[in-house]
């Protein structure tokens, strides 16, 4: 906290930008969406604090999904990619020390999960999860195989575009966020009812990672850039709160 101005409470979440709870084309939302209005109140210490995740909790392969579940000397099958980016707040400041967890289907579109019944095969060398903690500049990076699209029970013929799930834990419980990353150019993006809960093309674009040939490792792995933005805190010398709150 070297900022000149002291930190105020978190900036309220923009509910006109974030998806609504009830989105009938995504059928499961119908009976899992609260119907009463959310009760709004300013953040307190309970929301402005969070646990500390140290870099020392990470294993050397936590951010290498190609190898972290593979037998020694083997690797996961599929198009090799690097996903990198930064975690920032709404003020554009890096969020260092953020816990970023990611999970995904294998290259055939199959998850390693006992409730998953898609006929595509498991890859014995692919677990499907990894994690990282952001550096001082908010950056993270991991290596994986590009996940495949997969069908899912919703409409009669709905398919998820290729995607990677992300869970992000910043400096306040109020920042807690789960989202998904999509890949530039995937024709399934505009067809998906889960993407469809997003309220604007701008929001879809915010979750679509571009191919980055500058970060691509020749003869090895393509690179995709995916930045994430967490809620920011008001910055002011005129915060209306007693000392230490």
């Amino acid at each position: 906290m070297t900022d000149a101005a002291p930190m105020g409470g978190f900036i309220p979440r923009d509910r006109t930008w974030q998806p609504d709870a009830l989105t009938p084309p995504y059928k499961t939302s119908v009976k899992r969406s609260p119907q009463a209005a959310l009760i709004s109140f300013p953040t307190t210490l309970s929301e402005e604090t969070s646990p500390v995740f140290g870099h020392n909790m990470l294993g050397p392969l936590d951010n290498d999904l190609i190898h972290n579940f593979a037998k020694p000397g083997e690797s996961a099958i599929g198009p090799r990619i690097i996903v990198y980016g930064r975690v920032l707040d709404e003020n554009g400041r890096p969020v260092p020390g953020a816990l970023v967890e990611f999970w995904q289907a294998n290259a055939g579109g199959r998850y390693r999960h006992k409730k998953e019944g898609y006929l595509a095969p498991l890859d014995p060398n692919f677990g499907g999860c990894g994690r990282a903690i952001t550096g001082e500049d908010g950056s993270y990076e991991f290596r994986t195989v590009q996940p495949g699209p997969y069908p899912w029970p919703n409409g009669m013929n709905d398919w998820r575009p290729a995607h990677i799930h992300f869970s992000i834990f910043g400096h306040g419980f109020a920042q807690r966020l789960i989202t998904q990353m999509y890949f530039e150019g995937d024709p399934l993006i505009p067809l998906c009812p889960i993407v469809g809960v997003l309220k604007s093309q701008e929001a879809v674009d915010a979750l679509t990672a571009p191919l980055d040939m500058h970060r691509t490792v020749p003869m090895d792995a393509r690179a995709y850039k995916f930045d994430m933005v967490l809620r920011g805190r008001r910055q002011t010398y005129f915060e209306n709160r007693p000392e230490g709150m």
């Binding site: 709404e90 789960i178 933005v229």
Partner: peptide, 10 residues
Amino acid sequence: YLKESPSQTA
């Protein structure tokens, strides 16, 4: 300001 990343289902 940047916009918070849109949420998607877990």
